[in-house]
């Protein structure tokens, strides 16, 4: 047996097993501990299902439902915005393109917190956007964009969008533009070219961007916490709240397990949907 690949993979495997697999297993274990009574964060050596069953009440199910709905909305918005943007980038010539790419990637050099801070100030009740809307007489009272679903959504979309755009841009760049010109030459209108050539050829990238939006949207923490409403939050926010505000590690761990399960199920559903769509003979009978 050649030891070299094992030596090469060793450090990374150690990191992954030690800091990913072990913690995840530990989370599962912790989720079955009884809560601490007074000292520490849990009672060692105990087993209980109480933490998991606590999530089956109306409040717990509401949390899971909100998280799934939030992730789905993020996925839809991210795909709908990043695909046209990626096609737009492809249509640009080098100097404008460099400018646009810089604009899209620049926020990724900043902390997530900066972007959310900027959004909070821009879209707040007294922020410049509301002031502009008021002066132009479009609205009579400031739009409440922060501390609600809209704020949480927009915050997360801003964080995920740059990745999705770059991912899709790479994908549409790989597509040979000759394919689209030849479709035009065969008599297809711009819309028909998009519908029959560009869109089906971009499907793998769109699927990936959708997955990205769904997974990161369901795991969203900072957007919902800082820009969302305090009542309706995602599982991630609740995980942090349980662990730090109430010191209930077992509850927090149980929520983590739920979140992973929910993400897994939603991903499987998305994959099923994608296979069903692309399993059809593409561009077949009208």
């Amino acid at each position: 047996m050649n030891p070299r690949p094992y030596l090469l993979a060793g450090p990374a495997a150690t990191l992954l097993i030690g800091l990913l697999v072990c913690p995840l297993l530990l989370v599962i274990r912790v989720s079955f501990y009884q809560p601490a009574n007074g000292r520490g964060f849990f009672t060692p050596g105990t087993w209980t299902l109480a933490n998991h069953s606590a999530l089956m009440d109306a409040h717990g199910l509401g949390l899971v439902g909100y998280t799934i709905a939030f992730g789905t909305m993020i996925a839809v918005v991210v795909v709908m915005v990043s695909f046209p943007l990626a096609l737009f980038l492809r249509s640009l010539h080098s100097s404008l393109l460099r400018f646009a790419i810089a604009g899209i990637t620049l926020p990724k050099f900043a902390s997530v917190l900066v972007i959310l801070f900027g959004l909070q100030q821009l879209l707040g009740d007294t922020g410049p956007v509301n002031r502009m809307l008021l002066t132009w007489g479009i609205v009579s009272d400031p739009l409440r964009m922060m501390r609600g679903l809209f704020g949480a959504l927009i915050g997360e979309v801003f964080l995920i969008l740059p990745y999705a755009v770059i991912l899709l841009f790479v994908q549409v760049l790989e597509m040979d533009p000759i394919l689209e010109s030849s479709a035009r030459g065969l008599g297809a209108s711009r819309w028909q070219v998009f519908r029959r050539i560009t869109l089906p050829l971009s499907m793998p990238g769109l699927f990936l961007a959708g997955q990205l939006g769904l997974v990161w949207g369901m795991g969203a923490f900072l957007g919902p916490l800082l820009l969302g409403s305090p009542e309706n939050t995602t599982l991630s926010v609740e995980i942090q709240r349980q662990a730090f505000e109430y010191g209930r590690w077992p509850r927090s761990a149980a929520l983590s397990v739920q979140l992973i399960l929910a993400i897994g199920i939603c991903l499987a559903a998305l994959t099923f949907l994608h296979n069903k769509v692309s399993g059809r003979p593409l561009g077949g009978d009208r």
């Binding site: 990913l20 913690p23 795991g219």
Partner: peptide, 16 residues
């Protein structure tokens, strides 16, 4: 690590 929500990663690393 890209697919696991950071909150879950944090919650896993904390007891470890």
């Amino acid at each position: 690590p890209m697919c696991i929500p950071p909150a879950v990663l944090g919650m896993g690393l904390l007891p470890l």
